[in-house]
Design a protein around this nucleic acid. Sequence first.
DNA 1: CAACTCTGGTAGACAGTGTCTATGAGCGAG
DNA 2: CTCGCTCATAGACACTGTCTACCAGAGTTG
Lengths: 187, 187
Amino acid sequence: MRARLVAAGVDLVLTEGQSAVSLREIARRAGVSHGAPRRYFPTHVDLLSAIAREGFADLTARVEKTMRDVGPDPRTQLTALARTYLDFAAAHRGMFELMFRHDLLASGRPRLRETSLPLFAVLADLVVRLRRPTDAPAPVLAGALWANLHGIAQLWAWGSLPLATGVTDDEALLRATLDAHLGPAPH
Amino acid sequence: MRARLVAAGVDLVLTEGQSAVSLREIARRAGVSHGAPRRYFPTHVDLLSAIAREGFADLTARVEKTMRDVGPDPRTQLTALARTYLDFAAAHRGMFELMFRHDLLASGRPRLRETSLPLFAVLADLVVRLRRPTDAPAPVLAGALWANLHGIAQLWAWGSLPLATGVTDDEALLRATLDAHLGPAPH
DNA sequence: CAACTCTGGTAGACAGTGTCTATGAGCGAG
DNA sequence: CTCGCTCATAGACACTGTCTACCAGAGTTG
């Protein structure tokens, strides 16, 4: 039942967007009464958090698969990671929005936070291997890079970046970002 | 009346946060009935957009004042701009959230977009003056830098960056970001 | 086998929301 | 004075999340 509710919610957020994920609509799609979810998810926030956790798991799986496919070179892997992040945000806008709507999520509770940490760990690991001696300390560098990636994903998905800059290809932004933080690509 | 409603909304979002800015609560604080705003703002989105526009105007004013205070050196000005951006996000969390909640705003309508463009123009202008020949084209560089700044503001305000990286001072992230995109500070 | 508890879902109430509509107070123009 | 017209009011409607009373059915116990 838990799984059925979460599945209905995931389906809903993917097809209809973040604002459609109401408790009652999820219950309707799962074929139960509007009070049923309460036993498994005491509050709406708990259910949304479970749905968002599914999103993080999905994104993490995609990133790991991409990195396996792309070979061992860390720079290539980091580029692929970034590409996957941006593609995910664009392709699953509703889920991406939900995942970072901390006001809707039980971000305080440890379980949700934990789900997003492995993803950052992958990035942090690559940064450690790519960091040059004169760069900022690894945690700072990784944090700045993540923020840059995330900012591009957000502003691009909203259309703010194309509007303000006139740039029509996010690939240029991505390359500029990686080059800035890690030096020009060796290739 | 328009102004009174917007002022009540600005006050509400600053003190109670984004989720408290309901149409009816704004009307209550303005001392009118819940149907009154409808004549000036046909829908809730329009009222929220007007409030967000006020936020952009405030942020733009702060940035311009800061840049006047800090002298003519472009690098110093850019640093101050970034600092002001981060401080604004931290100090007026609710307003900052609202300003970038594009699902709540009439982002399609031109008026709101226009209000955020001058701010970006300031940044873009500084980037043009600081750009090195080997850097990415100016629009790309400015876009990437803005995304980086915005990402730090978001993730920092949510506590995600301190949690994931262990970094406790956003100044380090800011310096790393500027150094990455524009080269090490001359000073 | 009967009775009892207890899990897990139903259904209704409640306060709150945004939107729509009918109503009426106030006021300037003719 | 009376007609319009502007504009705020107040109620209805459908919807939301939460809470609570209820109850069907299964498992356990005496």
